[in-house]
């Protein structure tokens, strides 16, 4: 017992120190790097939001939705169309985005969540494809594949720093909110549902209600992310709803570590950075990522976070062993 309390104290010091160092690094990054990496990180933070909220749904609740990218697009188009067609201020458009995507999530959830889990994946998949075709074909309104020009939050160039902090803040907030949910009563219910829905129901949990709530919540978060992304990128196209995007989110979450708070964060940042850094390798990047995901899922389910965790355990065990010898 003594050893444990001892490592706890040093561990705590180490922990708070590294947290502080990380925050400092993240906060100061814009002063050390150029516009290019700021953009890369901005997009990476966007994926952090998507990956984390999908992890809440798929990882913690066990609802394997494959329409998360479509909900982001719905949010993005909602805000962009309201702002360009009705002259709404951007912040009002962004506020409307999660409402519309959560509403769509609610309707889809009502229809699918009563059924076996497997239907949810298929129905959401077909839903995403249909959203893509609909946006693509209603080009009089959405400009389809032509791409919809969206007014930017910070107009002009050289705004990389502003966007960096904006998306950093959004990502941090999303992660905090999800952390809060997981540790709340709701998180407990959701995990109970994932582990065994039947048992959860017997325990008196209204499973359908909590499932739909989780579905709406994560769709809403995706909608916010999509809206901000649209107003950052200045352009929205149905390519956002290509299945590759969804696969990308899955890859990020699995490589980072599914069912952990830090996993999707690390996965999203890592994958986005690697994708940008190795641009000239083209499709080979995706081949490598896909292989990595298969290997992780097949051999080792916990992703990067799990690997680090086990590495740390191994080191502390060795340390203890050595101290024991001494």
């Amino acid at each position: 017992m003594k050893e444990i309390s001892y490592t706890k104290i040093t561990g705590f010091k180490w922990y708070s120190l590294s947290i502080a160092a990380l925050l400092l690094l993240v906060a100061l990054l814009p002063f050390s790097t150029g516009q290019y990496y700021l953009q890369v990180f901005t997009v990476a933070f966007y994926y952090v939001i998507l990956a984390s909220s999908w992890n809440l749904l798929a990882g913690y609740t066990g609802q394997f939705s494959l329409a998360h990218h479509a909900f982001a697009a719905i949010g993005g188009y909602t805000s962009a169309l309201l702002v360009t067609n009705f002259g709404l201020p951007i912040w009002l458009g962004i506020l409307a985005a999660p409402l519309s995507s959560a509403l769509m999530g609610f309707i889809l959830g009502m229809l699918c969540l009563r059924m076996r889990a497997i239907y949810l994946a298929i129905a959401t998949w077909a839903f995403a494809e249909s959203v893509r075709i609909t946006i693509s074909m209603t080009y009089e309104i959405t400009r389809g594949d032509l791409g919809l020009a969206v007014p930017k939050i910070f107009p002009g160039i050289g705004q990389g720093v502003a966007y960096y902090y904006l998306f950093l803040g959004l990502a941090a907030m999303t992660v905090l909110v999800i952390m809060f949910i997981i540790r709340s009563r709701m998180g407990y219910y959701l995990r109970a549902i994932r582990n065994d829905e039947m048992v959860a129901r017997v325990m008196g949990i209204n499973t359908t209600r909590w499932k739909i709530l989780a579905f709406m919540l994560s769709s809403g978060i995706a909608g916010i992310a999509g809206a901000f992304y649209g107003h950052y990128n200045g352009l929205l196209t149905p390519v956002m709803i290509d299945f590759n995007e969804m696969a990308f989110i899955v890859i990020m979450v699995v490589i980072g570590g599914i069912r952990s708070i830090a996993g999707p964060v690390i996965g999203a940042i890592l994958i986005e950075l690697l994708t940008e850094t190795f641009r000239e390798f083209g499709e080979i990047r995706m081949v490598v990522f896909a292989l990595a995901v298969i290997a992780i899922a097949r051999l080792y389910n916990e992703g990067a976070v799990g690997a680090v965790r086990q590495g740390a355990q191994w080191i502390s065990r060795r340390k203890q062993a050595r101290e024991g010898v001494n």
Partner: peptide, 10 residues
């Protein structure tokens, strides 16, 4: 804590 710390290090 130390595990989370190592994630932070990563």
């Amino acid at each position: 804590k130390s595990k989370t710390g190592s994630i932070v290090i990563l």
